[in-house]
C-alpha cells in the first residue's frame, strides 16, 4: 500500500488518497477545470457568439469580480467556516460608493469601507469563536443585519450611479487587460503566497484540519478564525466597489447572487467544506466556470431563472462529489 502512495506528486497540501474512488478523486481535483473545458466546447457548438472578443472580456470581468469574493470564501472554507454575509457587504459597500459620488469625499468613503469590514468581520468572528455559534448561523444573522442596516441607512433608496473614476476602473483596460482582471490576478497572487508561504497560511490549514491539534502546537486558533472573516468581508468590499464601477450603477440586488456563487465556485474548485483542504487556484477555476456558465445562459438567450437553477445545481453537485469522497475515505 505504502509504496504506491509515495509516488504521489508533491504539493503544498497533498490531497488525501483513498483506496478506490479514483474517479471521485479525479473529479474533486479537476472538476472545475474539466467542466470549464466542457462548457467551452458546448459553447462553441450552441453559441458561437460566446467567443466574440467583447463577450470574452465581459466573462473575464465577471470572473474577476466573482473571483475576488471567492478568494475570501476559500479562506473561510479552509478554516472550516463559510461566510453568508458577503452579498450584503458587497451591496452596502456599493451604497457607500454612490454616496461618495455625490459628495466627492473619498477620505470618508475609505473610512466607511474600513469600518464596514471591521464591524462585519469582527462580529462574525466573535460570534463563531467566542460564542461558539455555527458559522452559517452567525454569518446569516449578519447578512440580515447588514442588509437591514443598509435599508435603514438609505431608506430603501439604494439606486444611484457610480463616480466617474470608478467607472473607468471598472470598465477600463491596462495594456489590453481589463483592470478588474488585473486586480483579481494580483490578489490571487497575494492569496497564493499568503496561503502557502506564510505562517498564517499554514496555521489556517492547521486550524481547518484539526482545531485541537492546532491549539496544542500553539496556533492562536481564535485569532486565525477571526482573521478569515475579516478577509471575507474585505474581499466582498473590494468586489462590491469594482462591481458598482463596472456596472456604473447600484441597486438593492447588486450582490445578491454572490453568496451562492462564491461557495459553489470554491467547493467545485476542490475546497473542502470540512475545512483544511483546497486552495485558491482550484477555487478560481470554479469562479471561471460559474462566470462562463452564467454568461453562456445569457448568450444562449435563456431566461434569467436558468442562472439560478444552474448555480444551485452546481453547488449541489459539488457538495455531493465531496460528500461521496469523504465517505469513501472514511470507509477505507
Amino acid at each position: 500500500m505504502n509504496d504506491k502512495v509515495i509516488t504521489e506528486p508533491k504539493g503544498s497540501t497533498p490531497a488525501r488518497r483513498a483506496g478506490g474512488g479514483r474517479l471521485l478523486d479525479w473529479l474533486s481535483q479537476y472538476a472545475a477545470f474539466s467542466a470549464v473545458l466542457l462548457t467551452l466546447a458546448v459553447a462553441a457548438i450552441v453559441a458561437p457568439a460566446f467567443f466574440s472578443p467583447g463577450n470574452i472580456r465581459t466573462v473575464l470581468i465577471q470572473t474577476a469580480i466573482l473571483g475576488i469574493v471567492v478568494l475570501g470564501q476559500t479562506v473561510a472554507l479552509i478554516g472550516r467556516g463559510l461566510d453568508m454575509s458577503v452579498a450584503a457587504v458587497m451591496t452596502f459597500a456599493a451604497v457607500f460608493v454612490i454616496q461618495s459620488a455625490g459628495s466627492g469625499n473619498w477620505g470618508l468613503l475609505l473610512v466607511q469601507l474600513v469600518l464596514l469590514v471591521a464591524a462585519v468581520g469582527l462580529a462574525n468572528g466573535l460570534l463563531v469563536t467566542w460564542r461558539g455559534v455555527p458559522p452559517f448561523v452567525a454569518t446569516f444573522a449578519l447578512l440580515i443585519v447588514v442588509d437591514g442596516a443598509r435599508l435603514a441607512y438609505t431608506r430603501g433608496q439604494s439606486a444611484g450611479s457610480a463616480p466617474q473614476w470608478l467607472k473607468e476602473i471598472g470598465s477600463g483596460s491596462l495594456l489590453g487587460v481589463p483592470i478588474p482582471v488585473l486586480i483579481w490576478l494580483v490578489l490571487l497572487g497575494v492569496f497564493l503566497v499568503a496561503l502557502n508561504k506564510t505562517t498564517w497560511g499554514r496555521w489556517l490549514y492547521a486550524v481547518g484540519s484539526n482545531r485541537e491539534s492546532a491549539r496544542h502546537i500553539g496556533v492562536p486558533v481564535s485569532t486565525v478564525v477571526i482573521s478569515t472573516f475579516l478577509i471575507t468581508a474585505a474581499s466582498a468590499v473590494v468586489a462590491g466597489v469594482l462591481l458598482s464601477g463596472y456596472l456604473g450603477y447600484v441597486d438593492n440586488t447588486l450582490g445578491s447572487n454572490y453568496n451562492l456563487n462564491s461557495m459553489a465556485a470554491a467547493i467545485i474548485g476542490g475546497v473542502a467544506f470540512t475545512g483544511g483542504r483546497g486552495g485558491v487556484i482550484g477555487a478560481s477555476m470554479g469562479a471561471l466556470l460559474l462566470a462562463i456558465l452564467m454568461n453562456l445562459l445569457v448568450v444562449m438567450g435563456l431566461d434569467i431563472f436558468w442562472q439560478q437553477i444552474v448555480q444551485g445545481a452546481v453547488l449541489v453537485i459539488a457538495v455531493v462529489i465531496q460528500g461521496l469522497r469523504a465517505r469513501r475515505a472514511e470507509g477505507s
Binding site: F305, Q308, I309, A313, L315, V316, G323, A326
Partner: peptide, 18 residues
C-alpha cells in the same frame, strides 16, 4: 451521498428559486 446539510440545501434552495 453524505452531503453537508447546510450547503447542499442551500444549493437546492438556489434551484428552487430558479
Amino acid at each position: 451521498f453524505g452531503a453537508q446539510p447546510f450547503i447542499v440545501t442551500l444549493g437546492t434552495m438556489g434551484v428552487l428559486y430558479g
